[in-house]
């Protein structure tokens, strides 16, 4: 419990540094620290699949963000600091935290989950699907349509990124086929 709380405090500190840092590169590195801390938290909470996925996704996010920031403008914007909007947003976020506290009282206590649906999966998952890893049996068998939808969303998002990033949409009538179409090496 103490380890969990200290890791969560570490994650929060990393997020604060990421938000308030002046340089975009240190922001990106701090968000990497947040992600890796989150993966250790997943490992502590008994979710090794999530920890592995989080590490892989975090590395990819770091690569993408560094690609987006490192060659471009690297300093933060300090010109217009709107104190009024900042104070108002801080007040609203305090209210958000208060209502969240009231809502957390209605949740089951930490460490004692409601397991109405999951008990069924744990009981019959191995016989019905043949997978000893119950998380995998849920993803790939009980809720396989959900995974299919995930693949569709992922395909659409990557296709959108490709379309936005490509250099040239269509070639002109007399143009040769050798023009570069696709993600160029440098911008």
């Amino acid at each position: 419990m103490l380890v969990l709380i200290s890791l969560l405090v570490f994650i929060n500190l990393g997020a604060i540094i990421a938000i308030e840092s002046k340089y975009l590169l240190s922001t990106v590195i701090s968000i990497g620290a947040v992600g890796f801390g989150l993966s250790i938290v997943f490992l502590l909470l008994g979710a090794p699949d999530l920890a592995i996925t989080q590490v892989v996704v975090e590395i990819l996010i770091l690569i993408i963000l560094i690609r987006g920031t490192v060659t471009l403008d690297n300093t933060a914007i300090e010109k217009y600091r709107d104190t009024f909007a900042m104070v108002i947003s801080l007040i609203f976020f305090g209210m958000f935290l208060t209502f969240a506290y009231m809502a957390f009282k209605a949740l089951p206590e930490f460490g004692h989950p409601l397991m109405r649906v999951s008990r069924e999966y744990l009981q019959h998952g191995v016989e019905k699907t043949g997978a000893t890893n119950i998380v995998m049996s849920i993803i790939l068998d009980y809720r396989a349509y959900d995974t299919l939808g995930e693949a569709t969303v992922l395909f659409t998002a990557i296709l959108g990124a490709f379309v936005v990033l490509r250099r040239k949409g269509r070639k002109k009538i007399g143009e040769k086929d050798t023009t570069k179409v696709g993600i160029p090496g440098e911008f």
């Binding site: 987006g68 959108g160 936005v164």
Partner: peptide, 12 residues
């Protein structure tokens, strides 16, 4: 995994 795809789109 879906978050990774959307973040790639936003950075693009």
């Amino acid at each position: 995994v879906i978050g990774l795809g959307t973040i790639a789109l936003m950075v693009a």
